[in-house]
Each structure stands twice: as structure tokens, then as C-alpha cells.
């Protein structure tokens, strides 16, 4: 931290200034001139929170995607299908047992298993053949999408989250002061806050797993040099299966979490695949911290676009992607890895 400040004094000041302005924007009561420029404070704070929570959801999906790519160089274009499959399975379980958490757990396990099966039965057979693997994942995603449409039809499904997660919480943030002198506090859906904290928890767990455990060390070693890892006596195939399982399981987990925040319907698979692709392109392929930064950026961009210029909001997301590709093609946190 200190070294960073000493080396990049200018940037440290800019970042600090930015943080102060942001905090002021969140906690201060806005003066009239600011409201005239930006609109009401309620809109701004809610949009900020929405961006953070949506970013959390995107991170849950994209972290698995980037993990799989980092280790296996396999662009798994069936990742969106894993998301949707997890959502449907979670819904069925939650609907029959009445327990939302059980649905969440089983979605993670079942989708993780299906990911492991995919790795052992399909991708292992075309090891090192990136293009073929990618094409196969496209085929799988199309087949799975049609199967899911046949089983669960095109109807929109929505989870019933536990009661204590439903409804809105009052935040200690004043929106405006009424003429009577009462402060109006900002309300925000509890569930969406839970999504954000779940994402932070998953991110922290992933970081600990990758940095503090032996298996995590093997995975990081595999990302850097696969051949050396197997030469030093590690069963690389087992590591691959494990990583594929975790990556797919996270997508299934995100399916239930996201399906509860929004809804489940056909077409969601492609939407989240696209979101994950943009997130990892911005954040850097193969980097978990990159996925976190990319997810936050994209989530915020999408929400601010939607709130302030809804018609052209989508453009902002792609604009970020274009700028990153032009200035830093390997992504914000991406290392310019070369093929071993």
C-alpha cells in the first residue's frame, strides 16, 4: 500500500479524491444545483447499488468462466447453459422441498457434476485442440437449450426466496429532507444486498482457495505452465476435472441466485454467456480479480446506462469493451500470457 502511494503519488491522490467525492455523493444531502444536473439523489444511490449487486451476480457467473479458461484455455461457450440449468434444477428442488437453500446447494452440486462429466467425457478427448473444444461447447449449448425448452417450456419461472430475504431494507442514507424537517431514508431490496454479499463471500473463498491451499497452488501453477506441473508429478487431469466442476458449479449457483433476483426463462443462457464474455474481456481472460473488476464495471455501466439514458444504455457496455480492447487488449488485469 505504502509502496504504491510512494511510486504513484499522482494516481493515489486522484483515487482518493474520487473516493471522497463518491462518499460525499452517497451520504450528503444533495444541494439543488446538483439535483438539477444529475436528477434526484434516490436515483443515483439506487443505481449505484444496483450496479454493485448486478456486478456481484456477473462475478458469480464469470469467475467460473475465467477459472476454466485460465487453466484449460477452453473457452466454454456452454457456460450460459450451466447457469440456466442450475436455475431450473434449483427451482424444481426448491419447489418440491420448499427449501430455497436446498435448491441452491443441489443446483451447485448437480451442475458441478455435469461440468465434471463434460470434462471427462468430451474435452479430455480433444485436449489441446482449442477450436474444436470451443465448437463443441457451442453445440452443447444449443442442444441443452432445446432440451431445457422441451422440459421446462418457455414459461417464466420465479423463485420464492425465504421471507427474511424478501422486501426492502432502510439504509442509513438520507435521500432528501422533507419540508417538515423529517429525513427521508433510502430503501433497498434486502435480497439484492444479499446477492452482493454472496458474491463478495464467494470471491473471498475463491481467493483463499487459490492462494492458501495446496490444490489452489497446483491450479495457479497449471495456469502458468501446464506441462511443468504434470512433469512434477501432479495428476493434471484430476485438477482439470476439479476446476471444471467448481467453475460449472458456480454457474449453477449463480443460476439460483440470479433467478431469484430476476427470473428464469429461455434465452437467459445466452444473456449471461454474453455478459461473462464481456466481463472477462474487460477484466482479462483467466484472472479472477480481473473478473471481479470487469463485473463491477459492466454492472455499473449497464445500470447507469439504463437509469440515465435507457434507450442507448446498452452502448455503454460495449463502449467500455471497445476502449479496453483498444488500449489494453489483454484486459485490465490480464497478463500477456503466451501459449506454452
Amino acid at each position: 500500500m505504502r509502496r504504491f502511494i510512494e511510486q504513484h503519488t499522482f494516481w493515489s491522490i486522484v483515487i482518493l479524491l474520487f473516493a471522497v467525492i463518491l462518499l460525499w455523493l452517497i451520504f450528503a444531502v444533495w444541494p439543488q444545483w446538483l439535483i438539477e444536473i444529475f436528477g434526484r439523489k434516490k436515483t443515483f444511490v439506487n443505481t449505484l447499488l444496483n450496479g454493485l449487486t448486478l456486478g456481484g451476480l456477473y462475478f458469480l457467473v464469470a469467475s467460473g468462466f475465467t477459472l476454466i479458461f485460465g487453466l484449460m484455455r477452453n473457452v466454454n461457450l456452454a457456460h450460459g447453459s450451466m447457469y440456466l440449468l442450475g436455475a431450473y434444477i434449483g427451482y424444481e428442488v426448491a419447489d418440491t422441498t420448499g427449501s430455497w437453500f436446498l435448491g441452491l446447494a443441489i443446483a451447485f452440486v448437480v451442475v458441478a457434476l455435469s461440468g465434471m462429466l463434460m470434462q471427462t467425457l468430451v474435452f479430455r478427448r480433444m485436449e489441446g485442440d482449442d477450436i474444436r473444444q470451443t465448437l463443441v461447447t457451442i453445440a452443447i449449448s444449443i442442444i441443452v437449450a432445446d432440451l431445457m425448452l422441451a422440459i421446462w417450456t418457455g414459461t417464466t419461472y420465479q423463485f420464492t426466496p425465504p421471507d427474511w430475504l424478501f422486501g426492502a431494507a432502510q439504509l442509513p442514507v438520507v435521500s432528501t429532507i422533507r419540508s417538515s424537517g423529517d429525513a427521508v431514508y433510502i430503501k433497498y431490496p434486502i435480497y439484492r444486498l444479499a446477492v452482493f454479499f454472496a458474491a463478495v463471500a464467494v470471491g473471498a473463498a475463491l481467493w483463499l482457495f487459490l492462494n492458501r491451499t495446496k490444490i489452489g497452488m497446483m491450479i495457479r501453477a497449471g495456469v502458468n505452465d501446464r506441462d511443468m506441473l504434470s512433469a512434477s508429478g501432479v495428476n493434471v487431469q484430476l485438477v482439470f476435472v476439479l476446476v471444471f466442476g467448481i467453475g460449472a458449479g458456480l454457474a449453477g449457483f449463480a443460476g439460483v441466485v440470479g433467478g431469484t433476483a430476476l427470473s428464469i426463462s429461455p434465452g437467459e443462457d445466452v444473456r449471461y454467456l454474453l455478459a461473462s464474455l464481456i466481463v472477462v474481456i474487460v477484466g482479462g481472460l483467466g484472472s479472477v480479480p480481473g473478473a471481479a473488476i470487469g463485473a463491477l464495471l459492466i454492472g455499473l455501466a449497464e445500470q447507469f446506462g439504463l437509469a440515465y439514458f435507457p434507450t442507448y444504455g446498452v452502448v455503454v457496455t460495449f463502449l467500455i469493451m471497445v476502449i479496453v480492447l483498444a488500449v489494453r487488449p489483454q484486459g485490465l488485469m490480464g497478463s500477456s500470457w503466451s501459449r506454452q
Binding site: G39, K42, T43, N46, T47, N50, G51, L54, P189, R192, L262, S263, G267, E268, R271, E302, Q303, F304, L306, A307, Y308, P310, T311, G313, V314
Partner: peptide, 15 residues
């Protein structure tokens, strides 16, 4: 005016 297939309305609701 939001695009077809938009999922997240929370920011529009806030606005």
C-alpha cells in the same frame, strides 16, 4: 423506453 429482454428494472424503478 427499455430494450426488449431487459431483466433488471431496479434502476428504472429508482428513476
Amino acid at each position: 423506453w427499455v430494450p426488449i429482454g431487459n431483466k433488471d428494472y431496479s434502476s428504472v424503478i429508482a428513476a
